[in-house]
Amino acid sequence: MLSISANSLWSETTNSSIQTQLLEAELALAQKPRTYFIFQVRDKKISLKARGIVLKEWEMKKVRYFGNSPPAEPISLLKKSALFPPKRKNIKPGSVTEDGEFKLATLELNDMPSVYTLSLKGGIYIFIRPQSRRFFSRLLSVWHYFKWMTFPPLEKIWFSIKKKPLTTIEIVLKNKKDSKELYWAFLEGAECLIF
């Protein structure tokens, strides 16, 4: 009985300690004039925040993680990679029509990829994709599952040899729109917390 209560006290202390580290990290982020992300892996939620206010939230339909637990400190996004990354269009001087109207060749939400990888500082890789709904996307999700089961363990060996941490997280979002919105909002250099 005594050991059970000691254990639960230890567990409460450790949870509170983790919370302290995360709150300290969030306070540091909220003090900057920038937006930041919070990936709540256990609660299956991604929040975009600024000054402690939630600006937007995305629900994770599925999440899998492997490797080192991410540190309880602000982590910056180094790179976004996709098979077909969006490309900016160049304006040709003099091509604007008389009434100042443009041909609508602009970079919009629909141009964003829905399947991509976020490479974060400290060997953290987050793979984002929308939930499979149609036959081909379901078929593709089998490939994603195979990739998830195969590559991270091999990468882990390579990273262990190099004595570097590796964290791989796979997040399945509700739909393509959510996935594209996250790509749009998460700019390279932006910071996040993962727990």
């Binding site: 202390t13 450790t14 300690s17 580290q21 492997f66 080192n68 091999l154 060996i157 590796l166």
Partner: peptide, 23 residues
């Protein structure tokens, strides 16, 4: 198998280290 073991092991280690020292 080795990669999977290393992944599981490192995941558990981080939590224990950082929590024990502060707790």
């Amino acid at each position: 198998g080795i990669g999977y073991y290393l992944g599981q092991k490192s995941g558990a280690e981080w939590k224990r280290e950082s929590v024990e020292t502060s707790a």
